[in-house]
C-alpha cells in the first residue's frame, strides 16, 4: 500500500513467514484457527482461507469483536491467531485486549500486522508506534517483536506452544535474514548478536539489522559496540539489560515512539538498578507525511544515525 522503495534482493516481508508458519502449524493441529477483521489479504492469509475455509473466522471490520471472538474461541478449546493491522488491533480493541485476553488470561495469539511506520504515507492513524507502550504493561500478555523471518517463525511457533496470551508484531517492511548460527529462540530471553564492551545497543524488530550495521560502522572507528536483540518486551530479560549496562552506556533503538516502549522499559530497569548514560532512539510522536523509508532516514533511524548517537553517548560515559 505504501510506495516504499523496492527492497534489496533477498530481503523478506515477515508477513509471508507468518502465514507460512501458521499454515504449517494448522496442518499438524486442528485447534489452530485464524480470526480476521476483513484482514485476509493484508495478513497474507488468502491461502489459509483456501485450505481451511471453516477454520477462518472473518468478523468483518470490527476490531473489538475480532479480539473478543478470539477470546471466545480459546474458551471453546481453539488456538486462535487473531490477525489485523497493528494500529487498529491495539488502539481500537485495547479494552478487549486488556479484559478479555490479558486479564482473563486466555490462549489467544494476537498478530499485529504491518506494525510501526510500515504504512508510511498513510499517516499517524495507520502507524502503530504506541503499541509496545500500551501492551507491555499488561500482565500475562507476552509481547514479542521479531527481527527477521527466522525469528518471526520461531516466535509464532513458540506462541502456539505457550498456553497463554501472546502479541507478536509482524512488520511488512522488508528485512534481511540475520543468518544466526546455532541460534535458539526462547520467549523472554534476549539475544546478544554481537559482542563488545564499549557500549551496548539494544534494539528489536526491524531496527535490529540497522543496529548491527551501526555497530559495524563504529568498529571502523575502533568502538566495540555490543548489539542485543530484545525481541521479547514482556516478560523483559532484565539480566541481559543489566549485563549490557556494565559496558557503561546503553543506546536503545525501536520502530516506535521514544516514550514508553523498549527504551522506556530498559530505562526503568537501569534507573532502578544501575543507572548509566542512555539514549532512546525512536520516533517523537505523530509523524509528518513520508514513506516508511523516508521517515526512518528523516528521524535518523538508520545505521549512521544510530552510530552518531552512540558516539555522542560515549562522550558522556
Amino acid at each position: 500500500m505504501s510506495a516504499a522503495a523496492p527492497a534489496p534482493a533477498g530481503w523478506h516481508d515477515c508477513r509471508d513467514t507468518f502465514s507460512r508458519t501458521v499454515e504449517a502449524l494448522a496442518e499438524a493441529d486442528p485447534r489452530i484457527v485464524t480470526v480476521v477483521s476483513d484482514s485476509v489479504g493484508s495478513s497474507k492469509l488468502v491461502n489459509f482461507r483456501k485450505r481451511w475455509p471453516e477454520r477462518m473466522v472473518n468478523v468483518g471490520i470490527a476490531e473489538q469483536t475480532v479480539v473478543a471472538v478470539g477470546a471466545g474461541l480459546a474458551n471453546g478449546g481453539k488456538i486462535p491467531f487473531v490477525s489485523a493491522a497493528a494500529c487498529f488491533l491495539t488502539a481500537r480493541a485495547m479494552e478487549q485486549i486488556k479484559a478479555d485476553v490479558a486479564y482473563t488470561n486466555v490462549n489467544v495469539k494476537l498478530i499485529g500486522q504491518s506494525s510501526g511506520i510500515a504504512y508510511g504515507e498513510l499517516g499517524p492513524t495507520h502507524h502503530s508506534i504506541e503499541d509496545m507502550a500500551w501492551l507491555r504493561l499488561l500482565n500475562n500478555l507476552t509481547l514479542i517483536v521479531p527481527s527477521d523471518p527466522w525469528e518471526t517463525e520461531q516466535a509464532i511457533r513458540a506462541a502456539a506452544a505457550l498456553d497463554g496470551p501472546v502479541f507478536i508484531r509482524v512488520s511488512r517492511m522488508p528485512v534481511p535474514d540475520l543468518k544466526r548460527s546455532n541460534a535458539k529462540f526462547e520467549i523472554g530471553r534476549a539475544e546478544t548478536l554481537r559482542e563488545g564492551n564499549d557500549l551496548a545497543i539494544i534494539a528489536n524488530g526491524v531496527m535490529v539489522h540497522r543496529a548491527l550495521a551501526a555497530a559495524e560502522a563504529l568498529a571502523a572507528d575502533g568502538i566495540a559496540a555490543r548489539v542485543v536483540n530484545m525481541s521479547t518486551v514482556n516478560p523483559l530479560d532484565e539480566a541481559t539489560i543489566l549485563e549490557a549496562a556494565k559496558t557503561g552506556a546503553v543506546v536503545t533503538v525501536e520502530e516506535h515512539s521514544v516514550r514508553g516502549g523498549l527504551g522506556g522499559a530498559v530505562a526503568e530497569v537501569l534507573a532502578t538498578h544501575d543507572p548509566v548514560p542512555m539514549r532512546i532512539l525512536g520516533f517523537p510522536g505523530f509523524l509528518p507525511t513520508g514513506s516508511a523509508d523516508w521517515l526512518l532516514e528523516h528521524f535518523h533511524l538508520n545505521a549512521a544515525g544510530i552510530a552518531d548517537a552512540a558516539r555522542q553517548l560515549l562522550a558522556r560515559k
Binding site: V57, V69, G72, L73, G76, G77
Partner: peptide, 14 residues
C-alpha cells in the same frame, strides 16, 4: 456478547 459469539463459533466449527 462478543466473547460469547466466539465461544458459539468454536461450538459451530466443532
Amino acid at each position: 456478547l462478543p466473547v460469547s459469539v466466539g465461544i458459539a463459533i468454536a461450538g459451530q466449527i466443532d
